[in-house]
Design a protein around this nucleic acid. Structure first.
Lengths: 156, 156
DNA sequence: ATGAAAGCTCAAGTGAGGTTTAGATCAAGC
DNA sequence: GCTTGATCTAAACCTCACTTGAGCTTTCAT
């Protein structure tokens, strides 16, 4: 354990495939922490490669950075996730993905019924009027809507 | 067919459940078009209710406004989508959703194999190193990445 | 004819997940 | 000691899908 245990930000970037700017961003968001040299440059632990890897994989699985930060914060003493942590976390992900699949399958079914009907009536369309809106958030601040939509109408 | 065929923006908003501001936004993006009164107020055709409904349903199915604009533009003479158009479009959506489901199922499988292994090595992790990155875009401009990631490394 | 309700434009804000830019400083090899 | 490349900070910028606000104008029912 000598000084080569500490790596520069560019090394961490190269080892994980993430941009240097993204690592600084993660630090700002509290997802990783860095030591500093006398000159003010960041030095990371080798273990942070694993930590960043965790971030990337969790992102692939659809977690937001905030959720990932939550998971990482739950680990005692800012520890890097190990096999046991991963087992617990991935259990939760299983359920989440299962729900996504179920919602998509329901969509598929509705779409099948709907092809050719061309009704496009928001009042009647089974595709639009579903309770499991969960399906896809599709991109963008759609979270600002979602409760309005009281009086939806018919084309007539 | 007299003047009541034309409806004000507020009517269109009420009939579709979309905010007035959103309709102006759609107009700016070229998704709908409006006539103007002498006073400069927008007047829409009744058929535009159907058109906006189409936008909403397509959004629910995960299309971006740009993609929706593409579909609408493909209709001859700015026509409102009818049953035949809808059949064609929903055929494409079927495939898209099927692919999403397949990707999620593959994730589920990999995650099942992975639980407890805790390797978190980007080089070896089957979850991270997949060809079908399609799975989830999860929220946020992740579309800027996606081609980099040439030199991904091992924890050691 | 009037007053409320609805409409108008244009600019700026939101949030997620970053990137880009500019100008200065640090670290390392020769 | 010098040059080169890496790193630093801070602020600005990007997309997407809208919303909000300010400051006026139009429309419509009475």
């Amino acid at each position: 354990m000598h000084r080569t245990d500490l790596i520069a930000i560019g090394d961490l970037a190269r080892r994980t495939g993430v941009a240097v700017s993204a690592i600084r961003f993660y630090e700002a968001k509290g997802l990783v922490a860095a030591l500093r040299t006398r000159g003010g440059q960041r030095r990371f632990l080798r273990a942070d490669i694993r930590r960043v890897s965790f971030i990337l994989i969790a992102q692939q699985l659809g977690l937001s950075l905030e959720e990932i930060a939550g998971e990482l914060a739950r680990l005692p003493a800012g520890r890097t996730p190990n096999a046991a942590d991963w087992a617990r976390i991935s259990g939760g992900l299983q359920a989440r993905i299962a729900a996504q699949i179920a919602a998509l399958e329901r969509t598929q079914e509705l779409l099948g019924q709907c092809i050719g009907c061309g009704c496009l009536s928001l009042k009647r369309c089974a595709l639009y009027n579903r309770e499991d809106k969960a399906a896809q958030r599709g991109a963008g601040p759609r979270y600002l809507m979602g409760d309005r939509a009281g009086e939806i109408a018919e084309v007539g």
